[in-house]
Write a protein that binds this DNA or RNA. Structure first.
Lengths: 223, 223
DNA sequence: TAGATTGTTAATCGATTAACAATC
DNA sequence: TAGATTGTTAATCGATTAACAATC
């Protein structure tokens, strides 16, 4: 086996892929056939070397002096991300966040199709949200297996997150998109990606706090 | 001025702060008075040196052989993040994502208080969500100024994001928490933090795609 | 052909980790 | 005191950026 297949792609590069995809789709809709990475980099505020390296990860090859074929590049990125085929997903936790994700149109663009949600609260069960069913949590293993669902989106409170993750693992789920602000313990074979609202908010608020401290400091100094 | 004030803290360290905060609050609720960073590191799956360096950023000093005072450490982290005082925020875009965030209880723990939302769609204006008002977008500058709101949460579609960001800047907003999958252009004085769902999903799905490719490859090889 | 652009190898930069002195 | 733990300086590691050869 090619050892390169085992060394997975750098996370920062993968995170930039949707940015490229979005821009390339724009170009395509305007009828553009080829594009250089200098142009991409300039438009997205990156440097061309970085773009070239990122794109190379998808397996695309460009033509010197010409650039990359736009449709081929789109296909390469979508294939690399697995966004060329739609993946079904379940949501666990039909609270306000889970319900929001059930109604979020944008996922279609990323090849993600939310089939239904699950919740432990009987009040929420049986009341569809955005046209999608909410089932009792205990039905998760059965339905996940029968529908071959591989992705679970975890939107339960932090305290319930590990139990819910255990159930997802038990249900044969292969990847968990975790919105709970807590690290999950799962077998190595299960992929976990943390969508950490609190981490992102921490970056925002620490910067804001520093700005405000500096301003107050300056104000005090000049008094 | 101290030049250290100008060099802002490393982003990865800041992102770990909520993790520490959560664990320390647990310890405190169990009546624990002191904690060593070896213990913190062990519980959170990190190494003690990293924890020590992260905590040092908040200005806390520990006592050799003893460790850190738990309540003091919590206060130091909250102060560092600006989570000791509640900050008011507006949501721009009352679609499904914006509405979800309006109802998300977890923000209280992070010192974030969502006052109201704004939307361009007359259908959405005047219909409160989770007990919070939805105003017409044109009222944003006036209300932001009068209520001294410094944080804007951007949950509009990608196409509308730059225009909405411009309006937020015009309204005197100091920090934008951007949920749109697109880079924003704002003056240097405005803080932007991107909460990029598509980037996170890209990491998840590329790993899953690779796993599935490998499995199919192995299956083919053994046939 | 000349020049623009790709693909790759080397240098730089920042964050993590290791080593170790200071100290209660 | 001895030993555990902090705080800091040095080494390592990975990602970004720069340099340059290959090529259409």
């Amino acid at each position: 086996m090619n050892p390169d297949m085992l060394r997975s792609a750098p996370v920062p590069s993968v995170r930039r892929m949707p940015l490229y995809l979005r821009f390339l789709k724009q170009l395509k809709s305007r009828g553009r056939q080829v594009v250089s990475c200098t142009h991409i980099a300039h438009e997205l505020g990156l440097v061309n070397t970085q773009v070239r390296k990122d794109l190379a990860m998808t397996g695309i090859v460009g033509r010197p002096k010409v650039g990359y074929d736009v449709p081929a590049l789109i296909a390469a990125i979508e294939g690399f991300l697995g966004w060329n085929n739609t993946s079904d997903a379940f949501i666990v936790g039909a609270g306000s966040l889970g319900r929001a994700l059930m109604g979020y149109d944008g996922f279609r663009e990323y090849g993600l199709n939310i089939l239904a949600a699950f919740d432990i609260d009987p009040e929420r069960v049986g009341r569809p949200v955005h046209g999608k069913e909410v089932f009792a949590l205990e039905r998760l293993p059965d339905l996940a297996e029968r529908l071959h669902v591989r992705i679970g989106i975890l939107t339960v409170p932090a305290k319930a997150a590990q139990d819910a993750a255990n159930l997802l693992v038990l249900s044969g789920i292969r990847a968990i998109w975790n919105y709970a602000p807590i690290g999950l313990e799962v077998p190595e074979s299960v992929i976990v990606e943390n969508m950490n609202l609190s981490a992102s908010l921490a970056v925002l608020s620490s910067r804001l706090a520093q700005t405000l401290r500096t301003e107050m400091g300056l104000k005090t100094e000049t008094e």
